[in-house]
């Protein structure tokens, strides 16, 4: 069995073999592998005895259930109004310049994916960004770049 198959059988064991477990299982795969590969979705479908199209249909609905490869660290900068007013543009520019990628892209070494997100719920402390599940409120262009270093950005 591939590592993905092992992971999925563990997740199925943990959450149960029902449609109600689909979201927790997909979330578990993304937690480990950062995205849902075709193989992963087919395996989940087989385990839960539903069609692979159903799995893809569900996964593709959710912003956090990516179906294209993502880097080891996924950076999401909030772009909604309050963070917009606190100059999220400068944060995005600094991250783009540092990582040498545009929003939506992944670095060549597969270490970072840069994305924007709708309201992250930190409107009083914008601009805010998430790196994987960790939250960083009140970032500046400088601290945003420093945070990347924490996640092993090669200088």
């Amino acid at each position: 069995m591939s590592t993905t198959e092992v992971l999925i059988s563990e997740l199925v064991e943990l959450h149960g073999r029902t449609r109600n477990s689909l979201m927790p299982i997909l979330q578990g795969v993304v937690q480990q592998e950062k995205y849902l590969s075709e193989d992963a979705m087919i395996t989940v479908a087989r385990e839960l005895n539903i069609s692979a199209a159903d799995v893809f249909g569900t996964a593709s609905f959710y912003t956090f259930l990516d179906t294209i490869p993502r880097g080891k660290n996924v950076v999401r900068v909030c772009k909604t109004i309050s963070c917009h007013m606190k100059n999220k543009e400068a944060i995005i520019r600094a991250l783009e310049d540092t990582l040498k990628i545009k929003v939506g892209e992944t670095t060549h070494d597969k270490q970072f994916t840069l994305l924007t997100a709708n309201c992250l719920g930190w409107c009083h402390k914008g601009p805010v960004m998430l790196v994987n599940d960790e939250v960083y409120p009140e970032v500046t262009p400088e601290t945003a770049v420093e945070i990347l270093n924490k996640y092993g950005r090669s200088k």
Partner: peptide
């Protein structure tokens, strides 16, 4: 998993049901 509309109660049920 990052969907605003799931705050709508019936959409939330759909999400919980997979």
């Amino acid at each position: 998993s990052g969907a605003y509309v799931c705050g709508e109660e019936s959409a939330l049920f759909e999400s919980m049901e997979g």
